[in-house]
C-alpha cells in the first residue's frame, strides 16, 4: 500500500480549514501531539503545524489566476528524511508507506528537516523533537469510527472536497483513477523523492474578457437620455 493524499488545486479555495482541523486533531493525538504554540496570544504568534497553505498568482493579467497550495508530508517513496536520521526515530512503515517519527527516539538534530524538500517537518521547541503529518494514522485504522470517518482530519474538513485520501498503489482505487484522469503530478520530481501525494492541476478554461472598450460618447448620451425618459 501507498497511502497518501490527492489534492485538487482546481477546487481548493485556500480557506485553511484542513490545516486547522489537522492542528485540532493532532494536538490531542498521542502519536505526535501536542503541537506546541509559541506566544499564541502575544505579539508574534507562531507554532507547529503539519499542513500549511500558501497562495500564489500564476500567469499574467488579465489571464492570471490564484493558486492555493496546501502542503504536508508527501510520504515519499524515497524518503531521504528517513535515510539521514541517525537515531532511527524517523521511519517509513513498510505496510502502508506512512512516514512517522518516534517521539521517544528523536534527539532534535534537525537533519531530517534539512533533507525534506517540501518543508513538511517542523521542530517542536517545547518537546525538542521533530514533528510532521502522520496521515492521521490514529484515525484511519480506528475501528471505533464509522467507515466514512476513517480518513485524515484534513480530508473530512475540506468544504470543497479538494482533498482525497486513498491507496495510490492500487490502480483501481478512486485516488489512482482521479490522478490518471486529471493528470495528477507530484512536486519537484527532479529531486527524486517520489512523493506519494499528488496534485491535480487547475482546469483549463477559456479566458474571460476582463474589460471591454470604453463606450463611444454618442452611445453614452443615448443611454443617458433613455434613462431620463424611463423615469
Amino acid at each position: 500500500m501507498k497511502l497518501g493524499l490527492v489534492i485538487d488545486l482546481d477546487t481548493c479555495v485556500g480557506c485553511h480549514a484542513c490545516a486547522v482541523a489537522c492542528k485540532e486533531w493532532n494536538n490531542s493525538s498521542s502519536v505526535s501531539g501536542p503541537l506546541s504554540d509559541y506566544q499564541p496570544y502575544g505579539k508574534a504568534p507562531s507554532g507547529v503545524w503539519f499542513n500549511r497553505i500558501r497562495h500564489y498568482e500564476i500567469g499574467e493579467y488579465p489571464t492570471n489566476k490564484t493558486l492555493n497550495m496546501p502542503m504536508s508530508c508527501m510520504h515519499c517513496e524515497d524518503a531521504e528524511c528517513v535515510t539521514v536520521c541517525p537515531t532511527g526515530a524517523s521511519y517509513k512503515r513498510p505496510e502502508d508507506g506512512i512516514v512517522l517519527i518516534d517521539q521517544d527516539k528523536c534527539m532534535g538534530c534537525n537533519l531530517c528537516s534539512w533533507a525534506c524538500p517540501y518543508g513538511a517537518r517542523e521542530l517542536d521547541q517545547d518537546s525538542g523533537t521533530m514533528k510532521k503529518c502522520t496521515l492521521c494514522v490514529d484515525r484511519i485504522y480506528d475501528l471505533e469510527l464509522p467507515v466514512e470517518e476513517r480518513q485524515p482530519a484534513c480530508v473530512l474538513a475540506c468544504p470543497t472536497h479538494a482533498r482525497m485520501f486513498g491507496d495510490l498503489d492500487d490502480p483501481d482505487s478512486e485516488v489512482s483513477k482521479t490522478v490518471r484522469e486529471r493528470n495528477g503530478f507530484g512536486l519537484m520530481p527532479e529531486l527524486g523523492y517520489k512523493p506519494v501525494n499528488q496534485y491535480l492541476p487547475i482546469r483549463e478554461v477559456k479566458p474571460v474578457p476582463a474589460h471591454t472598450a470604453a463606450p463611444l460618447l454618442i452611445e453614452g448620451v443615448k443611454q443617458f437620455t433613455n434613462r431620463i425618459i424611463n423615469r
Binding site: S46, V48, R52, R54, H55, Y56, E57, I58, E60, L187
Partner: peptide, 20 residues
Amino acid sequence: TGISRARVRLLDVGHSHGTF
C-alpha cells in the same frame, strides 16, 4: 508548484509570523 507554463509568484505565505 508543478506550474510549468506560466510565471508563478507568491501572494501570501499563509502565516502571520515566522515559522520553523
